[in-house]
Design a binder for these strands. Structure first.
Length: 757
DNA sequence: CCCGTCGTTATTTTT
DNA sequence: TAACGACGGG
């Protein structure tokens, strides 16, 4: 087959895209607006570099944030240039995992590490600092993760900016020590530790510079400090390396500040990569122009942006619709009706996506769609891999891979019950840690630096405990018998895995064997009988998902990585091409597009979420922008007057984002449109308006500033402020208990009474 | 050691 | 409202 000519794939690009593809010689920052064809640019660039610039494909590294994006990028690059199959197109985290396994010794991790999730981390913090409650431990875990996103160690001076509590550094340090004893890593380590290795070992940095000549980063606006440092260290800019660095991002789509993403990375890129050229991609190929106008009307309220104007290539299209509904049930019904009616006219379900701010909101749609027989797929929140039975099996697999894994050990040693309770577990773990410490001490001064594989092994510690108690005569305690049973099973499974010689045996055989031999299958099957759960089916699904991997240590590592490094992965067994409506959080839509999009729950407190202001509020607004720009043909926005929240029905306000956008006359308004949104009052749409006629309203007469009152739930308080917002009379009340709340007195007759002094 | 009941509490967003 | 943790009984 003849090599495709560069002109063939360049000819379909616009001028800016072409410029970005053929650019060379300096760092490059591509500011790519939504739908401007950035994936096409990156993939074409990869093909171009290989075919026209003779860059070896394996020396190209392209980094994305999600596995889905990585997969798509690789597929599209390969279509343009088959040799791109050898290029490294991966997520930041899977690249970090590869790096850590390769330099395991320098990074002080076990080569066979598995990745602890938040839950595992919390357990470990709880063990490292027993004084903490589970809740406190969870809070600490959150802060530790954030610290790692910023590459901060327990002794870093700047740690106070993450968490000012004086106890925190000690908690972090204790956790870190304990984590290292297991040899495993957490999510943050996948980026932070490679950075530390690169900074500590110049020769490794040189190896990387030699190996990767081209580094590209997608979704750069969502990179965090650790990832920035990773990029810096890999490319070796400070050392004058000529590695070609190209990052692609859109500051308007930065939505991960809460987990350490730094918009500064994109805003100050030029300063850290001197000589950077900037290319803007502003032609939008995705959406019709009225949808883009809606998007622009939203994001233009943000102050902190580089500024960019999308030009629509497609036609004007239909007018986006804003719908005001009485309650969340009506919202679900509205969506269902819309989708069903379109389906009757031939629109497939897969054209539709229903977007919401929090995962919990998916429930109303699931219920309604189930009822109306509309097929749907919930993206992301599928906690398949967090289910107890699934975690149990995976923990057993992880333990066999790394028998120092304290968390996995605790989880499975006594499941099903074998008489080895917490006290026994503690003793075994302490013994293993003592053995490891002793070995480490003995090592000092001797030249046997490589750590013994059995050192600190909990499996070995179990066997030792058994050996110490048997042969002494007398009855063997139940706990020791339990450890013996467990050690027997774990030993047998380890031998099975290591004894595999035929290459065509699938890993599913091994996973299945774990389920059977561990007794976990039976244990969970019993639960199915009693509570009618799906555990056996889930275990079977898990076993099936391992069929793609070979039955070996390497295969098992790859399998566990694939699960641990991408939680958004669809549930195994879900067919990807089914004709279903997509239910998805706004965050998860990053990089996706749909013909028809419904963004739901546009209410104050929900979206934007309560207590958002300043930079956080701007991020919420960008999230709205991301949602709008997913739509190709049709866009609907819904807002409810009532919503059930914490089991209580609350009266809701339309989101301030709606007022910001409606003033521009870009939306068609439907439903119970609040007065301030109606034609004629467009100019005054927004918050803090009203005032006129307030004195005449009976409610305003009753609830004046200073009025003392009593609320059923919150107790005694005083009206601090009273005003009309969006045509509704709202009071702000300060309670004696401390908090402040806002109410709509019109709807609080049963809960709110005036008290006379 | 396992099960049930009662009371409390929680909701961002995710690699 | 639902889910989970603490507690107590069997």
């Amino acid at each position: 087959m003849p090599e495709p000519l560069a002109s063939e794939y360049l000819s379909v690009l616009n001028e800016q895209q072409k410029e970005a593809v053929i650019h060379e010689g300096s760092p490059l920052l591509i500011l790519a607006g939504a739908g401007s064809g950035k994936t096409r640019v990156i993939t074409t660039k990869i093909a171009y570099l290989i075919a026209e610039k003779q860059v070896p494909p394996q020396s190209i590294l392209a980094v994305t944030f999600t596995k889905k994006a990585a997969k798509e990028m690789q597929e599209r690059a390969v279509l343009l240039e088959p040799a791109a199959s050898q290029s490294w197109i991966r997520t930041f985290h899977s690249f970090g995992a590869w790096f850590l396994r390769r330099y395991a010794e320098e990074a002080c991790v076990d080569k066979n590490f598995t990745v602890y999730d938040e839950d595992d981390m919390t357990t470990l913090v709880g063990k490292a600092v027993p004084a903490l409650s589970r809740q406190e431990a969870a809070r600490a875990v959150h802060k530790i993760s954030l610290a790692k996103d910023y590459c901060l160690m327990p002794d870093s001076k700047n740690l106070v900016q993450i968490e000012s509590s004086p106890e925190f550094p000690a908690i972090y340090a204790a956790y870190e020590k304990r984590l290292r004893e297991t040899g495993n890593v957490d999510f943050g380590d996948l980026i932070m530790r490679p950075v530390q290795v690169l900074e500590a070992y110049p020769e490794i940095q040189l190896q990387m510079q030699y190996r990767f000549r081209v580094i590209m980063v997608d979704e750069y606006q969502d990179s965090n400090v650790a990832q920035f440092k990773f990029l810096q260290a890999l490319s070796g800019v400070q050392n004058g390396s000529d590695t070609y660095v190209c990052v692609v991002g859109d500051d308007d789509q930065s939505i991960y500040r809460f987990r350490g993403a730094e918009v500064q990375n994109i805003l100050t890129f030029q300063q850290h990569f001197p000589g950077t050229q900037i290319i803007r991609l502003e032609q939008n190929y995705r959406s019709t122009s009225r949808i883009l106008a809606a998007a622009d009307s939203v994001v233009r309220s943000n102050k902190d942006r580089l500024g960019k104007t999308l030009r629509a290539v497609r036609g004007e299209g239909g007018q986006p619709v804003m719908v005001f509904l009485p309650g969340q049930d009506d919202e679900a019904m509205f969506c269902a009706d819309l989708i069903m009616r379109a389906h009757e006219k031939g629109t497939p379900y897969r054209d539709w996506a229903v977007l919401y701010r929090t995962n919990a909101q998916s429930l109303e749609f699931e219920t309604e769609f189930l009822h109306k027989k509309i097929p749907y797929t919930v993206v992301g929140s599928l906690k398949f891999y967090e289910r107890e039975e699934v975690k149990d099996i995976l923990a057993f697999a992880a333990f066999i891979l790394n028998p120092r894994d304290e968390i996995a050990f605790r989880r499975i040693v006594n499941k099903p019950a074998r008489g080895a309770g917490p006290k026994t577990q503690e003793a075994v773990i302490d013994a293993a840690r003592a053995a490891a410490a002793e070995a480490a001490g003995a090592e000092t001064g001797s030249e046997t630096a490589a750590s013994d594989a059995a050192t600190g092994s909990l499996l070995q510690a179990c066997r030792d405990a058994v050996a110490a108690r048997t042969g002494k005569g007398g009855a063997v305690p139940k706990s020791v018998a339990g450890l013996n049973t467990f050690a027997g099973i774990a030993g047998e499974l380890t031998e099975f895995l290591d004894g595999q010689t035929q290459p065509d045996v699938k890993l599913s055989e091994f996973i299945s064997k774990i389920a059977e031999r561990s007794g976990l299958s039976e244990y969970h099957a019993a639960d199915d009988e009693i509570s009618g759960t799906q555990r056996t089916a889930n275990i079977q699904e898990l076993i099936n998902s391992a069929v793609l991997y070979p039955c070996s240590r390497e295969g098992l590592i790859a399998y566990l990585d694939s699960i641990e490094l991408d939680r958004t992965l669809e549930k195994p067994g879900d067919e990807p091409d089914a004709d279903t409506v997509t239910l998805i959080t706004l965050h998860n839509t990053k990089g996706l597009e749909f013909r028809r999009v419904i963004i739901t729950g546009l209410e104050e407190g929900i979206f934007p979420r309560q207590d958002k202001s300043g930079d956080d509020l701007e991020e919420e607004r960008r999230l709205f922008y991301v949602g709008i720009t997913r739509a190709k043909d049709e866009l609907y926005i819904t807002s409810c007057g009532l919503r059930r929240l914490y089991g209580r029905t609350e009266y809701m306000h339309p989101s301030r984002f709606l007022a910001e956008a409606a003033g521009k006359d870009v939306f068609k308004l439907l439903g119970n449109v609040p007065p301030s949104f109606r034609a004629g009052s467009v100019g005054s749409a927004g918050f803090g308006t009203g005032g006129a006629g307030a004195g005449a309203d009976p409610l305003a007469q009753k609830w004046r500033r200073g009025t003392r009152l009593y609320h059923d739930d919150y107790g005694y308080g005083q009206v601090m402020d009273a005003s009309f917002i969006d045509g509704e009379f709202v009071i702000t009340v300060a309670f004696e208990s401390g908090g402040t709340k806002r109410f709509l007195p019109a709807y609080q007759k049963n809960h709110l009474v005036i008290v006379k002094d």
